[in-house]
Amino acid sequence: MVNFNGNLSEDTTLINVENRGLKYGDSLFETLRVIANKILFWEDHYFRLMESMRILRMEIPMNFTMEFLEDEILKTIKANEHTNARVRCTIFRGNGGLYMPVSNDVEYIIQANELDSPFYLLSETTYQVDLYKDFYINKGLLSTLKTNNKIINVLGSVYAKENDLDNCLLINEDKSVVEALNGNIFLVKGNIIKTPPITDGCLKGILRMQLIEMLEKLPNYELIEESISPFEIQKADEFFVTNVIKGIVPITKYRKKQFTTDVARDLLAKLNMRIRLG
């Protein structure tokens, strides 16, 4: 069952050829993790979505309150008989127009899929990455939004599959490492944890925000938001990817460099405790 503008339907062909998200990528999305019918970090997701809609000059409906959208998401999960779910909420400008839309009004689709575990689990498998250098992430504001313009991520995923990689690292025009294909990155050297700043063009990730907030309160670690060069990766002790669905995914290999996973394990335990305590 999908939720299209508040109406539940088993029809997954609701998008027509005039859809602006399809034609021009004129859309945004939020990927949510729902555990026991509770949306994790919902306030952060909601305000990021509202901010992104304003940046893209979309008209925010009067009924798009935090409570309304939460109810629509939970209604969709209930209709699919899920308890723990991965949810995608896609917002797109209404049909009509060419590059110039006829209206800034929006529509939405909510989809839900079952999740196996209520808590984040640390992967024990080998996870190998390399740089994807065919195209660059721009440092501008649009790169920080979760829009449907993800062609670099698609091409990077194809490259990863062709080269037997588990993920790729994206770089900006300054050749700084910005993020992974599916999440933000954190590099560990001793007790210093570094992550690229938003101004480098990385996604304004929700779990990135949660980890930064958590690390600032932990005396054993020092957090730095600073550009990361490919050369730094070779000298790091640990390197990991973060996103709301997977939590923390340790990278175990970058070219000939092998990484440990001790800090990722420690932070994931603290993150799960933070979730339990609400």
Score class of each variant (00 low, 15 high):
residue 220 N to R: 12
residue 167 N to I: 08
residue 15 I to V: 05
residue 14 L to T: 14
residue 134 D to W: 04
residue 38 K to I: 07
residue 113 N to R: 11
residue 223 L to G: 09
residue 198 I to P: 03
residue 229 S to R: 14
residue 173 E to V: 09
residue 98 L to Y: 09
residue 149 N to W: 03
residue 4 F to N: 02
residue 54 R to Y: 13
residue 154 V to P: 07
residue 170 L to H: 13
residue 91 I to V: 15
residue 135 F to C: 12
residue 145 L to H: 02
residue 167 N to G: 15
residue 174 D to S: 12
residue 118 P to T: 02
residue 193 I to N: 05
residue 127 Y to K: 04
residue 259 F to I: 00
residue 113 N to T: 12
residue 56 L to R: 11
residue 143 S to H: 03
residue 68 F to L: 07
residue 184 N to L: 08
residue 11 D to K: 01
residue 251 I to A: 01
residue 139 K to G: 15
residue 217 K to T: 12
residue 8 L to A: 10
residue 216 E to M: 13
residue 206 I to H: 01
residue 128 Q to H: 11
residue 72 E to Y: 03
residue 169 L to C: 03
residue 118 P to K: 04
residue 117 S to D: 14
residue 90 T to Q: 09
residue 235 K to M: 10
residue 220 N to F: 15
residue 147 T to E: 06
residue 61 P to C: 09
residue 76 T to M: 08
residue 78 K to H: 13
residue 72 E to A: 08
residue 199 T to E: 13
residue 15 I to G: 00
residue 87 V to A: 05
residue 61 P to H: 11
residue 4 F to V: 15
residue 1 M to E: 01
residue 70 E to H: 15
residue 45 H to D: 01
residue 171 I to P: 04
residue 208 R to L: 12
residue 3 N to G: 01
residue 240 F to I: 07
residue 109 I to A: 02
residue 245 I to Y: 02
residue 154 V to E: 01
residue 190 G to A: 08
residue 81 E to V: 14
residue 126 T to H: 15
residue 206 I to G: 00
residue 252 T to G: 11
residue 136 Y to D: 13
residue 175 K to I: 13
residue 245 I to M: 07
residue 166 D to S: 15
residue 191 N to S: 14
residue 44 D to G: 08
residue 95 N to D: 13
residue 35 I to K: 08
residue 246 K to A: 10
residue 69 L to E: 04
residue 110 I to M: 02
residue 132 Y to H: 04
residue 243 N to Q: 05
residue 5 N to K: 05
residue 260 T to L: 06
residue 107 E to F: 02
residue 58 M to Y: 10
residue 84 N to Q: 13
residue 273 M to A: 09
residue 45 H to C: 01
residue 205 G to L: 10
residue 146 K to N: 09
residue 83 T to V: 09
residue 162 E to T: 02
residue 238 E to I: 12
residue 156 G to W: 02
residue 278 G to V: 11
residue 144 T to M: 10
residue 268 L to K: 03
residue 224 I to V: 09
residue 54 R to M: 11
residue 95 N to F: 04
residue 169 L to N: 00
residue 229 S to W: 12
residue 258 Q to S: 14
residue 57 R to Q: 14
residue 77 I to K: 03
residue 219 P to R: 09
